[in-house]
Each structure stands twice: as structure tokens, then as C-alpha cells.
Amino acid sequence: MTSAPLRARLATVVLLAGLALLPPVAAMIGDPYLVTLANRAVIYGLAAMALDLIMGYGRLVSFGHAAFFGLGAYTVGILSTHVMQGIPLAFGWNGSNEALIAWPLAMAVSAAYAAFVGVISLRTSGVYFIMITLAFAQMVYYLFVSLPAYGGQDGLSLWLRNTAAGVALDDRTGFYYLCLGVLVAVWALLTRMVNSRFGRVLQGCRENERRMRALGFRPMPYRLTAFVISGALTGLAGALVANHQEFVSPALMTWSQSGQFMVIVLLGGLASLVGPIYGAVALLVLEETLVSVTQHWQLVLGPVLVLAVLFFRGGLYGALSGRGGRQ
């Protein structure tokens, strides 16, 4: 819990400056697709950062965060579909295309499901927790696969991106900066949170649950709160990805999507919050590089992940801050 060394801070400044300067650079070299790619990394970094809150600071290994991601995305997709088709969603309400309504709702839906999953799964620990979170994500996946009203297996196209306070989010660069702003804001918020009284308790429960009980703390409410916050923020990332892709489908909720968030946290550095931003960028660069070499890029990515687990435990941010192993 000591602050990071200068080298790591500098690297973070460079990374964020790089992300901020990417659109003009991409325009200069005539490759606007770079912005679309980077936008993906920003959104996935946000989801992984939310996961790091519970995985890094609470040692709660959730293998089901794709459910919260997908629920957030579908909330935006469904609200938008009802507006476009003019079919009432509930209580005569036709849904909404306004981000100020849809995004908080996406967070609320994801938070509600996180509360349900959390109440059941947090009574267990270890591999149980991993398997239960995975199974509950799979349940939501199958639910949406078997809902033909919202596209079933094929998913749902957004006719339009959301508007934010009436302003359309169609501009590629504008939307990118909005996502980057959200990411930085969430980073600032979570950094404060892990250093607060609440964060201390969460980390104490990670270190030694029995000791915490002897001091008068019951871990469950703290863990559940962190789990719900994490789910809500992952839902926000889902709302962003729906707008980014202008399309939502059950693919957002697959187990491999959950795995990908975990990989991003690992590559970036567990229990660092900023690490997932590194991890998301690194994974994207790695994937794009491999894809350009071979169509069977996962044949390489898989072993790279294995090696990273075995020999690169602190992740990128851990290496930068001289923290080879894990806390």
C-alpha cells in the first residue's frame, strides 16, 4: 500500500498521454481505425479495472464478470430497440436513447445481478467461488441466447448510438475521449476507494479473514459492497461497448469474455487498478500483432498466457514498480 516509485508513475503518465494524443496522431498518419481499436482497449481496461477491485483487493476471483458486461450492454441495446420500434417496454415507457438514462440503468441492472450472485457466491470461497460465478454468468448467457425478441443467438443491432444530454455520440473521436474520460474518472474514484477505510477493511479480509473477525469485522457486507460496485462499473463498460460496436450479442457474456478480463488484469498487474489499462493495451497490441502474422493467432496467445502466469507474476505494472511477485 505504499505509493508507486517514480518510474511507474512516469510510465503511467506516458501511457495516458499516449492514449490522449492517439486521435490526432492517427489522423496524421491517416489510420483512423487506430482510434476504434484503442477505444476497445479503453473499454476493456475499464471492465478489467472494475474486476481488479475485487480480484486484486479482495482476493475474490470472479470468473463471471462477462455477465455484468453483457447485462450493461443489453440494457442499452434493449432500451434503444424499444425507442426505435415504438414498442412499450414496461408501464407504457418506450425505452430511451439518452445515455444519462440508459447508462445509469445499465449500471443498476448489472449491480442488481451482482447483488444476487454475490449474496449466494460470497458465502463460499476459493474454487467454489470461481465455479459459481462462472455458472451464473453462463445462466445469463443462455437466457439471452433463448430470447428471440432481442435477437437470440444473433444479437441486437443498435440503430443509433446513445445521445448524451441530447448530443449525439456518433463522432468517433468524441466518443473515444468520452470513454477515456470515464476510464480516468473511475480510476480516480477507485484509487480513493482502496485507500479509504472501506478499502482497508476489504484488503484486511483478503489478508486474514480470521484476524478481521477477531477485530470485530464481518467480511460479508464489505465483500458484497465491493462486488456490487465492481459489477456496476463493469455494466458501465458494457454500456460503452454497446455504443462502440453499435451491436450487442450473447458473445459479450461468454466464459471466454470473463477469462479475457482476468487475463487483462494479470498482464497489467493485480491489485494496482492502473495495471488493467496497461494490460488492455498490451493484450490489444499482442492480438493485433499475432493476427497480422497468422490466422491461428490463439495458438500463440495461449502459450504466451501460460508463460506470463509462470514467469511474469506482477504483470507490466508490477515490473515497472519493481514488484515482481504479488502482494
Binding site: V127, G259, M262, V263, L270, Q298, L305, A308, V309
Partner: peptide
């Protein structure tokens, strides 16, 4: 368990 999950996740991709 986190390391085990991530490494064997890599094996699945492979």
C-alpha cells in the same frame, strides 16, 4: 487458484 485458472485458460485457447 487464480494462477491455475489463468494458465489453464491459456491452455484452452491453445
Amino acid at each position: 487458484h487464480l494462477d491455475q485458472v489463468l494458465a489453464t485458460f491459456g491452455l484452452i485457447l491453445f
